[in-house]
């Protein structure tokens, strides 16, 4: 393996098993042994197919592709949330992986912003003293000083987003996985995110960035990977990658749209 590699995928595939007519109940599963109507049907869905990719420390990679092309699956595989079906996915053992915790996932609306920030930071395995040290930075970064002791239910979705990103940014991840973060938030917040991402890059951190926005990809990334139908179709510069993706989209639209 070349030095400086943080993530390496070798012939990585991920299949999901779509179960039709599957019941989450034991009762029905037992019933299905005798009753044909209740039997489940399996169908395999290839979310990623034979993907090979090497990512070095300090790279910012834009993952683009249409919905269902496998971008988010790749992020979830890197994060270790799901397991590859075949192939290998090597991730630097020492790397701290940062994800934007889904809004409403780790957060609890009855708790204050401060408690939510503490809880979210502790998911990374920090000790109490480490979190105490991180907290002022998180609060300052979020710009929510006045609201931090308010329950989260009083926050707008943009404010929750800011708090979530503040935690991700302040824990200094070595690999930051971002999925469509610019979909919400005002221009000021987006500018701040961008500055933070660039700061992380300057410190040699790696960023995997899923986005549909060409502007965001251009601003953040120095390399683009285009995924389509679970396959890696393009891997190279930002300009060429976005052009390739554009072409892909247009040809798909031509097929979908009937001629007028």
């Amino acid at each position: 393996m070349t030095p400086g590699t943080v993530i390496e995928a070798r012939h990585l595939s991920k299949h999901f098993i779509l179960r039709r007519n599957r019941s989450p109940e034991l009762k029905v599963r037992v019933l299905s042994m005798v009753h044909r109507k209740h039997r489940e049907q399996l169908e395999e869905f290839e979310a990623l197919r034979d993907l090979s990719l090497t990512i070095r420390a300090g790279e910012a990679i834009g993952l683009v592709g249409r919905n269902g092309s496998g971008k988010s699956t790749l992020l979830r595989l890197v994060a270790g949330l799901i397991r590859p079906t075949s192939g290998h996915l090597l991730v630097a053992r020492a790397a701290r992986i940062g994800t934007m915790v889904d809004i409403g996932a780790g957060f609890h609306s009855e708790l204050t912003g401060r408690d939510n920030a503490r809880l979210t930071a502790s998911i990374y395995g920090f000790s109490r003293t480490e979190i105490d040290a991180l907290l002022p930075g998180i609060i300052e970064y979020s710009g929510l000083e006045h609201f931090i002791d308010q329950p989260l239910k009083n926050y707008s979705s943009g404010m929750q987003m800011r708090l979530g990103f503040a935690v991700s940014a302040q824990v200094e991840p070595d690999i930051l996985l971002l999925d469509e973060i610019f979909a919400v938030g005002d221009a000021e917040f987006q500018a701040k995110c961008l500055a933070t991402i660039q700061g992380l890059r300057a410190r040699g951190k790696t960023i995997l960035f899923v986005s549909h926005s060409p502007e965001a990809v251009t601003a953040v990334c120095d390399r683009v990977c285009v995924l389509d139908d679970g396959e890696l179709r393009f891997d190279g510069s930002v300009g060429e990658g976005l052009a390739f993706y554009d072409g892909l989209r247009q040809s798909a639209e031509r097929i979908v749209r009937p001629r007028r």
Partner: peptide, 17 residues
């Protein structure tokens, strides 16, 4: 110096248990 580049040790998501 960044922590990632130092340790050339990797986890394989396919085999880790």
């Amino acid at each position: 110096m960044n922590r990632v580049a130092e340790g050339a040790e990797y986890l394989d998501r396919a085999t880790e248990r």
